[in-house]
């Protein structure tokens, strides 16, 4: 693997994470528990689409075959997607969505703090911009998880259930492979493994405030680094790519 190939894959992975989570968050549009939260979820979805655009555009540039961000988003199949599995899981209830937001945004808080120091100028710039957005996503998710965890018996039960179900998908956030190793040598990629302690600490603190128990250590699901996904991703893509695939000659 050359550095160029690694950088391509790395940007794709970051782009796919944003793209697929934005797809899930945007499904909340006109489905949120009340109007103000509908607007809030859409704001986050829009931040994520913007990030996906920037990352995929860069991936296309690195690849050098003239592919646009739309080509990459709308013309790749399941096995060519590299987003973490946690992003593609169906929304579940509002507690499930907020717990996922908490897990992901806490990770991203640490991740983009580091990525903004990348020796790659584009990744550093996207990282700095994203960090501001992610701080707000984190604040919003944290407040909701505490509110729901410490709300009623029912809301507490739902949050606990979401934490238990999502826990096995959090290990993948910190996984690294040859791509990361190669790029880390030159200070381009973030050492994700190093972020794990900080993440655990912060998540533990927040869940304690929410009266939620941390699940016991167990098996962590994996696969996305090799493009092996849950069954859910295929359905996201078949909806998302429908027009582009059905009318390949059209521009929209």
């Amino acid at each position: 693997m050359t550095q160029q190939q690694a950088l391509y894959k790395y940007s794709l992975r970051l782009g796919d994470n944003a793209l697929i989570l934005s797809a899930r968050l945007s499904e909340w549009c006109s489905n949120a528990p009340f109007l103000e939260e509908d607007l809030a979820l859409t704001n986050m979805a829009l931040d994520l689409i913007g990030r996906a655009q920037a990352m995929l555009k860069y991936a296309g540039e690195v690849d050098g075959n003239g592919k646009t961000e739309d080509d990459l988003a709308y013309r790749r199949s399941e096995r060519e997607y590299y987003n973490n599995l946690i992003m593609e899981l169906p929304n579940g209830d509002f507690a499930y969505t907020m717990v996922r937001q908490l897990f992901v945004s806490t990770f991203e808080l640490f991740f983009f703090e580091e990525l903004q120091k990348s020796t790659d100028a584009t990744l550093a710039a996207i990282g700095a911009k994203t960090l501001k957005e992610v701080k707000y996503h984190h604040l919003h998710a944290k407040d909701w998880v505490i509110r729901l965890g410490d709300g009623t018996a029912e809301s507490n039960r739902r949050v606990q259930q979401a934490v238990n179900q999502l826990w096995m998908y959090t290990g993948e956030l910190f996984e690294m492979d040859g791509t990361d190793a190669l790029l880390m040598k030159d200070g381009i990629a973030v050492n994700a493994e190093h972020l794990k302690m900080g993440w655990i600490q912060m998540v533990t603190q927040i869940l304690a405030l929410a009266n939620i128990e941390l699940p016991a250590d167990g098996y962590m699901q994996t696969g996305s680094r090799m493009g092996i996904h849950t069954e859910h991703l295929g359905h996201i893509l078949s909806e998302m790519q429908y027009l582009q695939r059905a009318y390949p000659d059209a521009t929209w």
Partner: peptide, 20 residues
């Protein structure tokens, strides 16, 4: 105006509604 159940939520909902 906006609806919210606590101060933090009120501030965030105001942000999400009126500073888009």
């Amino acid at each position: 105006s906006i609806h919210a159940s606590d101060k933090q939520m009120a501030l965030q909902n105001a942000r999400d509604t009126y500073s888009r």
